[in-house]
Write a protein that binds this DNA or RNA. Structure first.
Length: 119
DNA sequence: ATTATGACTTATT
DNA sequence: GAATAAGCCATAA
């Protein structure tokens, strides 16, 4: 069964800006085995800047609690992780996603079927 | 308030 | 297809 897609706890909300809280909360709605994109998130939280989303996630204060590794770029390339856009951390991100059942193409892009669009 | 930065995106060269 | 520029918006200094 899917893990309880919790939301951000009040404590967590209190530690970040309202915008980040909204982003993280939305992120917690992404089911295990799926990913979302910066753009979908940005749209979901009501701004039109994926860059702002990236900013919100780059210093993720709630590392494993909030599945920040379930966010990829709009073209379904891997995006960044732990403050880096490439390197060993990215490799770890891929491993995590694979461990959750996300499929990758040979390009290192995520399969379209694994993208969660906040339907 | 103003400036600089960035895990982005799109258009242009 | 890679490199650059411009647009975007929240954050930190």
């Amino acid at each position: 069964m899917q893990p309880a897609l919790g939301r951000l706890t009040p404590s967590q909300r209190a530690k970040v800006t309202p915008f980040r809280a909204k982003v993280l909360d939305a992120l917690c709605q992404v089911p295990r085995g799926k990913v979302t994109t910066y753009k979908y998130l940005s749209k979901h939280v009501g701004c039109n800047s994926s860059q702002a989303i990236g900013q919100a996630l780059k210093h993720n204060p709630f590392a494993p609690e909030v599945p920040c590794h379930r966010v990829v770029k709009t073209d379904r390339t891997i995006g960044g992780f732990s403050g880096s856009i490439s390197g060993p951390k990215i490799d770890k991100k891929i491993s995590l996603l694979r461990g959750e059942g996300v499929d990758f193409s040979e390009d290192g892009t995520v399969e379209a079927a694994c993208v969660y669009r906040f339907e």
